[in-house]
């Protein structure tokens, strides 16, 4: 059996540091700490969950949950330089097949060019472009998003797949990207829901993510903004490590960036 050896949640964008140098410094330091910890875990596969920003998905059709199955992916180059990294077809297809009898019909994506929402975290978690990465797309941008409970449950299905179907010794790291609170192009833009963000992080690292998964998507949207809903990807990650406790690696409310910026690590017991 394979093992989920670690989970991480992190914001998926950076803005220029001018005027907020100390906060920006702590954010990039936190992201580099995530890089260091993932390298130490020596993953064979990284599952990277997040949202697309109407760059791959479009008005033509709303895709709720999808997995990238290609042998390699080339990023869009919006924010980070375009880069090509390996996917993991066997892992991704196995996930799609395993998910179906477990209540999830995943869209399989052969052609996708990850935008900044995936490419910045990808650059953070593996700058060498040598560890295969399986992108999992969780729609938080367009109505109707999947419920937080379902995202968490899908993470648990991933864990079961890894433990039941993947080769012995395979080490898998799961990363949920996006958030924390931010309102984009809404009247509340510039607000940062510090209390919500800090409570979210505190409960997640206390091993209480299942409670967070009981929030409705509407509740998260209302309390932490349209961008804040991206934390459903963190809940997917947490679902892959049920009950795991962890550590806050950084949290910076930065109104100038219109965002709460955060990062956490969850560690399974005996990883």
């Amino acid at each position: 059996m394979g093992r989920i050896v670690g989970g991480f949640g992190m914001s998926h964008v950076l803005f220029p540091p001018q005027g907020v140098e100390p906060q920006a410094g702590r954010v990039i330091d936190g992201m580099m700490e995530i890089r260091r910890r993932i390298a130490a875990l020596k993953p064979d596969v990284i599952v990277l969950a997040g949202s697309d920003h109407l760059n791959n998905f479009s008005l033509a059709a709303q895709v709720t949950l999808a997995v990238g199955v290609a042998d390699s992916f080339t990023t869009m180059g919006d924010g980070t330089p375009a880069a090509t990294f390996p996917g993991h077809r066997a892992f991704a297809e196995a996930f799609a097949r395993f998910a179906e009898p477990n209540g999830f019909d995943l869209v399989q994506m052969e052609e996708v060019k990850p935008d900044h929402g995936m490419s910045l975290p990808k650059l953070v978690v593996d700058p060498t472009d040598t560890v295969p990465v399986v992108p999992v797309y969780i729609n938080s941008l367009m109505p109707v998003p999947p419920s937080p409970r379902r995202c968490y449950r899908l993470g648990t299905v991933l864990k079961q797949m890894v433990e039941q179907q993947r080769p012995a010794g395979e080490r898998v790291v799961v990363v949920g990207t996006g958030g924390l609170s931010h309102w984009l192009c809404l009247p509340e833009q510039g607000r940062v829901a510090v209390e919500f963000d800090e409570d979210f992080i505190a409960r997640m690292i206390a091993g209480r993510s299942a409670e967070l998964a009981e929030y409705s998507a509407d509740h998260i949207f209302r309390e932490s903004g349209n961008g804040g809903l991206e934390v459903v990807s963190w809940l997917f990650m947490a679902g892959a490590l049920p009950g795991a406790k962890g550590e806050k690696l950084f949290y910076e409310p930065i109104p100038q960036w219109i965002s709460g910026m955060g990062g956490v690590a969850l560690m399974p017991e005996a990883a």
Binding site: V13, L14, F15, P16, P17, A24, I28, M31, M32, G79, T80, P81, H116, L120, L123, V124, P127
Partner: peptide
């Protein structure tokens, strides 16, 4: 013109 994340790329790209 500089990109949104240019200030961090040297560090991110090593």
């Amino acid at each position: 013109a500089p990109g949104l994340m240019d200030a961090y790329l040297d560090r991110l790209l090593g």
